[in-house]
Write a protein that binds this DNA or RNA. Sequence first.
DNA 1: GTTATGTTTGTTAGTATTCACTAACGGATA
DNA 2: TATCCGTTAGTGAATACTAACAAACATAAC
Lengths: 193, 193
Amino acid sequence: MNNYTERQNQIIQESIQLIAEKGIQGLTIKNISNAIGITEPAIYRHFDSKNEIILAIISTMKESTNKELSQIDDNNPTIEKIKKMIQGHTNRFIKNPSLTAIIFSEEIFNNNSILAKPIRIMMKLNQNKLIAMIEKGQASGDVRVDIKAEQISLMVIGSFRFLVSKWHIMNFDFDLKKDVNEMLDAIEKVLKV
Amino acid sequence: MNNYTERQNQIIQESIQLIAEKGIQGLTIKNISNAIGITEPAIYRHFDSKNEIILAIISTMKESTNKELSQIDDNNPTIEKIKKMIQGHTNRFIKNPSLTAIIFSEEIFNNNSILAKPIRIMMKLNQNKLIAMIEKGQASGDVRVDIKAEQISLMVIGSFRFLVSKWHIMNFDFDLKKDVNEMLDAIEKVLKV
DNA sequence: GTTATGTTTGTTAGTATTCACTAACGGATA
DNA sequence: TATCCGTTAGTGAATACTAACAAACATAAC
């Protein structure tokens, strides 16, 4: 698991919820403490500052993403691996829609220099993993080679993010799973050799 | 042009700049008035409230997008039209990087119910225009028909947004024009019949 | 042409509210 | 006895916004 106490994990979860509901401006110590049912100063028994809470949120996201990526069987065909990866993310979002607010956290946190760096590192890491996956697929003849892996990864991640973004904006008011699968079918057609 | 006074336009422009520099949390009446060189209460001579300023920002974005879209020659091949559209946006962002903060404004404004609605309408409108463009291309044999126009538009907009998002996050530290053109070449290969 | 009047656009000084965070204290538990 | 983990009460700073007033200037009356 992670190194956080039960109360710390509770604060992290409620904070993600709050960002989803009210945006980053809704993430206040008062809102967090109200959500949990303790007073404001009690929060400071568990985190030194609000920034520390946000860093913990980022760290939690990082962990759950890594866990998910490690579960993908490397022996499957590339397109299957991409599908599994995106579907895994999708299931996680459906299970916990609050997380969709965080997928865009690069933008939300971009103007806080302390928080921007870990976000950027995580983003780059994830993309590099996908690029490596696609390049391997190109080497093994799974994926067309006339388009660079970097461009393909841009399309895959971009399409998915835009779809999830829309789902969030539309207040989760359509079947994300269905739309993601349609998108993945289109991606499959596009990637075929 | 628009119906705003000179001072109102100045407030709108400085506000866009502020959002780009410091995020939506940096958009305060004090920051706006400092940027312009007048006092805080003077702002209220030109806008009734901060919300009115944000609505004016949205309206300005809408106008400039429409202006751009109307300039595309409808007689060109579909792929050329898509390229022109994306390149037009790109040039606008390069000329005024502050605008990149606004392309994600759906997310930034999503938690303010007064502001979310006009943003959503604008978003849907733009996407419908692109879908219509692609469907016309499919009918005329310009674009492959085995993928629905909606899916193609998702890929095009998603890829572009993700690229611009990265440009913003990386502090505009790569050649956006070059990367966009590489992306458009990939899109072209993908869309070919 | 001068004076009176109204409008526009700014000022200073202030409001109430919210923010992150702290000091001092107390009960429960090891 | 010491350590958690909570409380009440408060801090100073920042927030959007307001009240009251003043200078500049255009319009219109005399």
